[in-house]
Design a protein around this nucleic acid. Structure first.
Lengths: 147, 147
DNA sequence: CCCCTCTCTAGACTAGTTCTAAAGCGAGTC
DNA sequence: GACTCGCTTTAGAACTAGTCTAGAGAGGGG
């Protein structure tokens, strides 16, 4: 049992570093770890899941750093924040233009390619405002779970 | 200073009661108070704002009751819950089909008539699922506030 | 008047997130 | 190599929105 096992899929460090730099983020050890886990594949993770996953192997990144890092990644456009309900914020490793289907009953979030959906008739914005994004969340429920 | 002043716009009690009953909610004193304030006009209030407003005059409704009552109103379709960001859940006195513009900088929420906006290409749902709703939030930012 | 059910309440509790103050790190300079 | 400066990370405390609990109240039959 002495060999090192990685339980969590990760990008390799160089690849993660390059992604950070490409977004103007200086690649510290901790940021690279967080990015390596979150960006390993298309997925939606909460801050806490990510904290657990990052520290699941030998790494050590503090809670505060995970939160700071996620905030930074979002501001820099590397990942996307998806707010689905009161108690659930997900970080989406796919920052591209797409929307989500949220299953209210089991809490899962699924991507919706933005090619599949189309929005027309967005109103003109106030002159001093600019568009930050359009979030569409399609909420579904298992049949018969209405109160 | 001895006269009773109502600082907060409210529906009259009978009207509020009737609205509750029409949605299958038994009109207790507390529920009527909450409804009278929230439904007085089209608006978006957080649970805490509502708690303060309801108790601003002579009324007394506890925090737990305000939360329970809002949850009930949402389940019964009397009001709508709008989740815009991590720390902000609004209750919308307009439960009809419409969407929202959220100003990221000042935290205000504005209605978008659903006639103005149109969504096409919603994917087919899984067989055992039904649509709970489609939320569209257009996020705007004052120019030059990008980090 | 009693009982049963539903509702309300204060206040304790929880979870998720942010804050704080101190320590660590790394890139340039001498 | 040692010094400095600014940025980053850290542990843990603090904060906040919301939920839970256990007991009190209210109202409608019978």
């Amino acid at each position: 049992m002495a060999h090192k096992v990685r339980h969590v899929p990760r990008l390799d460090q160089d690849q993660a570093s390059r992604l950070l730099e490409a977004h103007g983020i200086s690649p510290t050890r901790q940021r690279v770890q967080v990015a390596a886990v979150l960006l390993a594949r298309p997925q939606h993770l909460s801050a806490e899941q990510l904290l657990r996953l990052v520290n699941a192997d030998d790494e050590r990144v503090s809670k505060a750093t995970v939160y700071n890092t996620l905030g930074l990644f979002v501001r820099k456009g590397l990942v996307r924040e998806v707010v689905v309900d009161r108690a659930r914020v997900f970080y989406d490793s796919n920052a591209g233009d797409h929307h989500h289907v949220y299953d209210v009953d089991d809490g899962t979030l699924t991507d919706l390619d933005s090619g599949e959906i189309e929005v027309n008739g967005l109103p003109p914005l106030p002159a001093d405002a600019e568009l930050d994004g359009v979030d569409i969340i399609v909420r579904i429920r298992r049949k018969g779970t209405r109160s």
